[in-house]
């Protein structure tokens, strides 16, 4: 993996890598170099399988992390490319021309995180949600509990317990 990182480093301005396992590494790539880096990995390094494309909301840094995980089956290795994009201008280049199946991931990311991929097929169409008019629900600032309380009624007689307090009470009923 280190040899691959060195080869990539000569071509693209990479961030510090994370050597998660001998067969899995994550590396940060500037968003504008992501597409050429993916193309290089696919065509020159044998990372032909797009395992997944997903996002992580780092709301405290006002950034989204997009993770593109690629796999090379012959060498039994995986590399995850991380691209950080600003939350308030969440747009990324589409890669549906590299992997047609990426269009599905991109549709979901637009719906769930509000990240746009201009030019991606059917990107405007609803994927899972229908008629959703709130903020994209997988963003960290979307509060599922508040949404549920506002939109659904509670079953009468229902009690909730904080698990830590409940277990403490069960294990130490005398309060010691």
């Amino acid at each position: 993996m280190r040899a691959l990182y060195d080869r990539l480093k000569q071509l693209f301005p990479l961030g510090e890598p994370t050597w998660q396992r001998p067969d899995l590494a994550f590396v940060t790539v500037p968003a504008e170099f992501l597409r050429p880096a993916l193309l290089h990995l696919r065509d020159r390094e044998g990372y032909t399988h797009l395992v997944l494309l997903t996002a992580v909301d780092w709301i405290e840094d006002e950034q989204f992390q997009l993770t593109y995980l690629l796999s090379n089956r012959t060498q039994a290795r995986d590399i995850g490319l991380r691209a950080m994009i600003p939350r308030d201008a969440a747009t990324m280049a589409s890669i549906h021309e590299l992997w047609p199946t990426a269009a599905t991931y991109q549709r979901e990311l637009r719906e769930m995180f509000g990240i746009d991929f201009p030019g991606s097929p059917r990107i405007e169409e609803d994927f899972i949600l229908e008629g959703w008019n709130d903020i994209p629900p997988y963003r960290r600032d979307f509060d599922t509990l508040k949404y549920a309380e506002e939109n659904y009624s509670q079953r009468p007689g229902r009690e909730t317990h904080d698990p830590a307090t409940h277990m403490k009470q069960q294990l130490h009923p005398d309060g010691r």
Binding site: T18, Q20, R21, L24, F26, V51, L52, T54, V56, T67, L69, D78, G80, P163, A164, M167
Partner: peptide, 24 residues
């Protein structure tokens, strides 16, 4: 009840009956 895990990320895969199943 107080389990905290340090910052990190990983991907685990397995071969299910339909193909590659994984958790990121």
């Amino acid at each position: 009840l107080h389990w905290k895990i340090p910052r990190g990320e990983t991907y685990i895969r397995g071969e299910c009956s339909r193909g590659e199943y994984g958790y990121y």
